[in-house]
Amino acid sequence: MPKARTQPQQPVPEQPDRREFLRVVVHGGVLLGATAVGGVAVWQQSGGESIVQAVLPLAAMASLSKLERGAPARFEVTLARRDGWRVVNRSRRVYVTRVAGGETPESFAAFSAICPHAGCEVELAGKQYVCPCHQAKFDEAGAVTAGPAPRGLDPLVLTVQDRDGQPWLHVAWQDYVIGTEERTARTT
């Protein structure tokens, strides 16, 4: 029929019938299933163990005799961490300050430089610690004096251990959950 030929050839919209629905179910199901396999694959490998606790050498005790009260010293420690398929070395800063005379672990106090507010690193400004990100301030004992930090600087445990025949001050590094008033050790 000539009239039919002049009609634009647009596809006939089929009614969404049972058969079409089943097709969506079958092929959509295959897609979902395959995505689930891929999702589980990624989920299986996400996280993984990451070193958040480690006892690391800071300095020889002999060199610490020069450390005086009211003048904290900054040390750098290196932690191996899992980064996906890599293991990488990351550095962290530790502040050590003298709290008593002598050469025992109890003579010193140590703080993690990670600000408990948002995870930036605090800097030493005279006798206080200042976080450059949001201006949180902490006194020499690590307590909050100004700014948005929910708690004081996180203390780290010090020990004295032998290293190459010399007594060395070691720090037990620990990551803490940031942004909370309560101090909670991170386990992963």
């Binding site: 295959v30 897609l31 299933g33 395959a34 995505t35 396999v37 891929g38 999702g39 589980v40 990624v42």
Partner: peptide, 12 residues
């Protein structure tokens, strides 16, 4: 569908 689904997982 299988290639697309697993491909998303692999690319992640």
């Amino acid at each position: 569908a299988i290639l697309a689904g697993t491909g998303v997982g692999l690319s992640l």
